[in-house]
Design a protein around this nucleic acid. Structure first.
Lengths: 183, 183
DNA sequence: GCCGCTGGAGAACGACCGTTCTCCGCCTTC
DNA sequence: GAAGGCGGAGAACGGTCGTTCTCCAGCGGC
């Protein structure tokens, strides 16, 4: 097992455990046990727990945003595609809300920088998909709201409602640009 | 200092510290220090940390919902009043999102039952204010979404946007009942 | 005035956590 | 085959946490 595979296994273990149980609730020994990577190598690849936490969130940030971007760009209705993608996510077993919000809530000011960056990136992806920075603010609220509701009552329903609300907001934004009656 | 005052001081200290720094990050000794209540009494009133955590969330649940209910019931537009109330909350110093979502994210399956109950109560309060259980689902998404966005970028702006979205949703629901063109 | 008890202050205890260290087997190199 | 060093397994260490215990000062009842 080379370093790259060890890194992957460590991040896999960290992601499964930290996301499912919280960060402070999972000790380094659980990570070692699940990953099969010895402690010595763990600390060579990630010099402290903080680094492993940041690594976990950074990899998840990249994967999550890339998956959402792939699903939405090129779709007939990119905004609706965002909420369809959310619906599938919410229905996954083990879904437990937004990993970044969970980390921010748990770690407070000590949360890694990627938490803030993730939300900024999501905001600009939504702006790109909606073609409007204004509308993106509304969509962000809908995405976060659906995720938060689903985190306590899992299932795709909140995504469906948020999708309908997003359609409403998009239509209203269109009307604001081209006032009622105009063609 | 009688037991009732000690209880209040303990819950005050617990709320300030747990909400600001997270639950696992705050030790019982910090609670003792800030409350001025000796450890022995603390453990007589709350037999374990779990009980103190549950007590903190339960008191916050009652206070938070009562304050929102007071602000919204009797207002000319109860739904709009909900989001005005949120705007004030978001602007408070030390605002750090929904204490119940934070606790759920941190504690996972071990979170006290009041977390689920709080969201159910909020849902039914919104249904009461909006006069519609259907609409309440949308409002819940907007309330949670605005709170989540504000927790990472504090300030009242998300509440204002959510308020506008709520007006849109309410108007659309009205149109659904009385289809376009009907009076 | 003395006894007994309640309650406070802080030490103590056992468990666990993040991190480091020790020891040993194994593989490479000559 | 011998020497050396790399990496793994697990013990060890210092610190912290939740919880309990010890000890003592103060106070009410007789």
């Amino acid at each position: 097992m080379d370093d790259e595979e060890a890194r992957t296994r460590l991040l896999d273990a960290a992601e499964e455990l930290f996301y499912a149980e919280g960060i402070q609730a999972v000790g380094m020994d659980r990570i070692r046990e699940r990953s099969g990577v010895p402690l010595k190598r763990l600390y060579r690849l990630f010099p402290a727990k903080d680094a492993l936490v940041a690594g976990y969130l950074e990899r998840r940030d990249r994967r999550w945003l890339a998956s959402l971007r792939d699903a939405a760009t090129g779709a007939p209705d990119p905004v609706a595609a965002v909420f369809d993608w959310l619906a599938e996510w919410f229905a996954e077993p083990g879904f437990r809300g937004c990993a970044f919000l969970n980390a921010a809530g748990e770690l407070g000011a000590g949360a890694p920088a990627v938490v803030q960056r993730h939300k900024a990136e999501l905001r600009s992806l939504l702006a790109e998909l909606a073609g409007s920075a204004e509308l993106a603010e509304d969509l962000l609220i809908l995405v976060e709201g659906a995720t938060a509701v689903a985190s306590l009552t899992p299932g795709p329903a909140p995504a469906h409602r948020a999708r309908a609300l997003a359609a409403l907001a998009t239509a209203a934004a269109g009307r604001a640009v081209r006032p009622a009656g105009a063609r």
